[in-house]
């Protein structure tokens, strides 16, 4: 049976520490924005932590929400791409093929979650950070769109290793960088086709919800609401 990768994020556990963001940057060769770029809105974080504030100072509550590509089953970005740079892979992931992308921006405009990021310039890393590039992940040139892949390179490696060793993939064998890096264990990754996996069970939780579900995009990222 084919895998169907999904993620669950327990917002009750999320502390907003952004370790996931750092892990994602390191794993996926995401360029690090300068303050000037950030000021012009040109940051790139495949995974970002959105902050929502409640109440007035000094009585403020901050709520954190890690937002990454929701890997929609019916992704609005897919039908609008003229070159099939973004399409669905057999395991239900929204795949971004950098080589096919001509940069029409249409996918990003049609993404209700605004999780698509554009390479405004060729990427640069401050010395010596270019030395820690992950060889499994392509560095993207100026002019192409990119986004979270659920660490597809890790999924691939996990499946290869299981095929080589003859051992079935167990739940939790494959972990995207963000999940691995989360100290609060707020993020869980797994196979939604396996009813026993942790992510499937969390998706069944009464607290589980999906972002902008009403748009009919059928995301594969589940958010577990805060307990009240």
């Amino acid at each position: 049976m084919a895998h169907r990768w999904g993620m669950a994020i327990d917002l009750d556990r999320c502390t907003g520490c952004e370790a996931c963001v750092v892990a994602c940057h390191a794993e996926n060769n995401i360029p690090i924005s300068t303050p000037e770029q950030a000021a012009t809105g040109r940051t790139t974080h495949w995974l970002r932590v959105d902050r929502y504030y409640e109440g007035d100072f000094p009585d403020v509550k901050v709520k954190y929400m890690p937002v990454l590509c929701q890997q929609c089953d019916e992704a609005p970005c897919e039908p609008v791409c003229p070159t099939y740079a973004t399409y669905h892979n057999p395991e239900g992931l929204n795949v971004q093929v950098y080589n096919r992308c001509v940069g029409t921006f249409y996918c990003a405009n049609n993404c209700p979650y605004t999780v698509r990021y554009f390479n405004w310039f060729d990427p640069v890393w401050p010395e010596p950070m270019q030395l820690q590039h992950n060889p499994d992940v392509a560095v993207r040139m100026a002019g192409v769109m990119e986004k979270c892949t659920f660490c597809i390179q890790r999924i691939k490696r996990g499946k290869d290793e299981s095929a080589a060793s003859g051992q079935e993939l167990a739940d939790g064998d494959i972990q995207p960088a963000c999940v691995q890096g989360c100290p609060a264990e707020a993020m869980v990754f797994g196979d939604l086709n396996d009813p026993e996996s942790k992510v499937s069970r969390m998706a069944e939780s009464s607290r589980a919800t999906r972002l902008l579900e009403e748009l009919g995009t059928k995301p594969k990222v589940f958010y577990l609401e805060r307990g009240r």
Partner: peptide, 30 residues
């Protein structure tokens, strides 16, 4: 002009190519 990689604009045209790919006719850009 508005393309990120304008020199690849012809990838929107339907012609047999080395990418083994036809354009996506469902896209309003087509």
């Amino acid at each position: 002009i508005h393309l990120g990689r304008a020199w690849r604009f012809y990838w929107l045209m339907p012609y047999p190519n080395s990418r083994l790919l036809w354009p996506n006719f469902r896209s309003p850009l087509l």
